[in-house]
């Protein structure tokens, strides 16, 4: 069993009000390390056996048409051991 992970993040130029809200909540709890926070989504996709190049290409395609909205988001596909 292998896990293919797709991370989807808002593009840097798109306002992320949720990330901003988290960034402003952190110092209220005494956490002062953050200069900025961006919030995204992570998809974990399990496949039987090692992912084949074809499967990875299909996941790339799915990430583009469904898992992300290319107008506002970027995605990264990787295999997690």
């Amino acid at each position: 069993m292998a896990k293919i992970v797709v991370d989807v993040m808002l593009k840097p130029e798109i306002l992320d009000p949720q990330g901003n809200a988290v960034a402003s909540a952190l110092p209220r709890l005494g956490f002062t390390f953050a200069t900025s926070v961006r919030q995204g989504k992570r998809f974990e996709i399990e496949v039987a056996g090692e992912p084949t190049p074809t499967q990875l290409a299909e996941v790339e395609k799915a990430a583009e048409v469904l898992l992300s909205n290319p107008v506002i988001e970027n995605y990264v596909v990787r295999v997690e051991k």
Partner: peptide
């Protein structure tokens, strides 16, 4: 309509959440 690409752009979270 935006997700269908019939219209350009996207609708995102209200700026004040």
């Amino acid at each position: 309509l935006c997700e269908s690409h019939l219209l350009p752009g996207a609708l995102t979270r209200n700026s004040d959440l």
